[in-house]
Design a protein around this nucleic acid. Structure first.
Length: 279
DNA sequence: CTTATTCCCTGATTGC
DNA sequence: TGCAATCAGGGAATAA
């Protein structure tokens, strides 16, 4: 499930290979539900002939700046992958769209669970305007984090996953950041002290930066554009480690259902629900 | 404004 | 062995 480090890894690898190239044929849209807000024919015709002048990222969204006035935006959701190949595709299994670029390159949107989406809009803010701050940018300070959490009574992890509060964290890195900060995922988000907020801020930045340096995390779905997996999975300390020993204290990592998602945590380092460390 | 729940979808896993 | 039920989860939509 691509989160900020994975999407940023994809952005960098795509940027080095397809910036300056154009959509030389109408894209093949195999699943019309991939395309948001436009009819498929409008989408493919508007894209034809456009050159990709740059690729940026906002939260978990990829933004392809085009030579014309429109921006192509993609979100991979849980299982989406953007794969780049110099060979013609041979199977349409899980394939939702194929973009034909100059130089014989194919950019393929593969997505088994079909949650992913693309937009073609004049103003990217129509899609990404509601996102919270970028956690790796300079402007994201402990003070900003504290302000975003202030007054919130929902569980800390649920608020961290709210893209309008902070852009780019998903289930993996929310668990990792909370573990690193020693904070319980069920704590009321607005109940953090200033030192706790500072610790969380540092943990979020360090976790994301390390994952980015490792090329992202792969369980089963995330692939880089060249089809290779990420290398961060072995670095995970809490996420999906239920029953395994905490690397810090040796206690068994526990799992808790929270808002329909799993939260993994160390009962000794982060506390137990209803326990004295339950804030 | 807030928080909680439902839904989309299908491969993998679990249960019988 | 096979087949059904369950789980996983990003985030929009909906409900409260």
């Amino acid at each position: 499930m691509p989160e900020l480090p994975e999407v940023e890894t994809i952005r960098g690898e795509l940027a080095s290979r397809i910036v300056g190239r154009a959509f030389v044929a109408p894209p093949l849209v195999l699943d019309p539900r991939l395309v948001q807000r436009l009819f498929v024919q409008e989408f493919t015709q508007a894209l034809l002939g456009q050159e990709i002048s740059g690729i940026s990222r906002r939260g978990k969204y990829l933004l392809f700046r085009l030579s014309g006035p429109l921006t192509l935006i993609a979100h991979l959701k849980m299982t989406g992958a953007l794969l780049l190949s110099a060979e013609p595709f041979t199977s349409v299994r899980h394939l939702r769209a194929v973009f034909f670029l100059g130089g014989g390159l194919e950019l393929r949107f593969s997505d088994p669970r079909r949650f992913g989406a693309v937009w073609l809009v004049p103003d990217p803010a129509e899609v990404v305007g509601g996102l919270g701050p970028e956690p790796l940018e300079q402007g994201f300070t402990p003070g900003v984090l504290g302000e975003r959490l202030r007054g919130r009574k929902a569980p800390l992890k649920a608020v961290l996953l709210d893209q309008g509060v902070l852009a780019g964290l998903g289930n993996i890195y929310a668990d990792e950041a909370l573990f690193r900060a020693g904070l319980a995922p069920w704590r009321a988000a607005g109940s953090l002290t200033a030192p706790e907020t500072a610790a969380l801020h540092g943990a979020i930045r360090a976790t994301l930066a390390e994952a980015l340096a490792g090329g992202g995390t792969t369980f089963s779905d995330y692939l880089r554009p060249d089809g290779s997996p990420g290398g961060f999975a072995s670095c995970l300390q809490a996420h999906r480690r239920e029953g395994q020993p905490c690397y810090r204290c040796g206690a068994a990592i526990a799992r808790l259902g929270l808002r329909g998602r799993s939260a993994y945590y160390c009962p000794r380092c982060q506390g137990t629900p209803g326990g004295e460390r339950d804030g």
